[in-house]
């Protein structure tokens, strides 16, 4: 067996378990991702996708196992702004009185002083990020007045402004317009070329085939993990979704 140099992995999760007050949400889950890899996280609702994200960001504690981010602990990954999390649209309060600019600026908070007063470099980072997601016309728009796609781009800009090397995206394509979908997929290719590592959860099987080098199928634990072309088979998908035929999920194979 080849020796593994853990420094080579951006994300390394070994046999992690998460339980909420004794209720197991995820067990014996493994994941190893390198720079420049895009991995799809696929599973039913309640299969532990969000829990997996929460474990990687340190939002929940793991009860067993080990997580290394760039070979370091989750705690130091937080301090280094290594991981950015892009929430589902449903996961945020869209009526919160806050503008696009302020949301994206939150991406810089972790590296600011205690008063979170922006430096010139922070302002520039926010400007650039907003430009990359094509929201320059909406700098001071309250997020409540944005479309679903624009809101998704706002949070993507926050992740860009953070300059994180790992992006975790919860359902990045759900409820977005065609233009946003195209913009996000272009950004993914740019991120990949920049050497960022991306883990995204999705319900859309077509997106997995389109973007993801790797796929992680989970149902409380890992059902299958590997290259998309090898692992993303009808049999594995059926197992992941508790016996539902992949024809139903994917449409007939072309």
């Amino acid at each position: 067996m080849e020796t593994i140099n853990y420094q080579n992995f951006r994300i390394q999760a070994e046999n992690i378990c998460v339980d909420y007050n004794g209720k197991v949400a995820l067990y014996d889950a493994n994941l190893r991702l390198k720079p420049g890899q895009i991995c799809g996280l696929v599973g039913m609702n309640g299969a532990g996708k969000t829990t997996f994200f929460n474990a990687l960001t340190g939002f929940v504690n793991i009860s067993k196992g080990k997580i290394r981010i760039n070979g370091e602990s989750v705690r130091s990954a937080q301090k280094d702004q290594t991981i950015a999390y892009v929430p589902q649209n449903e996961g945020i309060d869209s009526q919160f009185p806050i503008s696009v600019w302020d949301v994206v600026m939150m991406g810089r908070y972790g590296s600011m002083n205690i008063f979170r007063s922006p430096r010139e470099s922070d302002v520039q980072a926010v400007k650039d990020a907003i430009e990359r997601v094509d929201l320059t016309d909406h700098l001071s728009t309250p997020i409540g007045n944005l479309s679903g796609g624009q809101r998704k781009r706002t949070f993507l800009a926050r992740a860009i402004a953070q300059r994180a090397s790992i992006l975790l995206l919860d359902e990045p394509f759900s409820g977005v317009d065609i233009r946003t979908e195209k913009l996000i997929s272009e950004l993914f290719i740019q991120f990949k070329n920049e050497g960022k590592t991306i883990l995204l959860s999705t319900h859309d099987m077509i997106h997995v085939r389109e973007f993801c080098d790797l796929v992680l199928l989970i149902n409380k634990t890992v059902v299958a993990y590997g290259e998309t072309s090898e692992v993303f088979t009808p049999e594995n998908i059926t197992t992941t979704f508790g016996g539902i035929s992949p024809d139903f999920l994917l449409g007939p194979e072309s």
Binding site: G58, F59, Q78, Y85, P87, M106, G110, F115
Partner: peptide
């Protein structure tokens, strides 16, 4: 006053706050 912005972030998106080490 000191923690004005952090508290705003905490109310808005605690998960992001945690992710960036706040």
């Amino acid at each position: 006053s000191i923690f004005r912005k952090d508290l705003m972030l905490y109310c808005f998106d605690p998960r992001h706050a945690k992710t960036v080490g706040i």
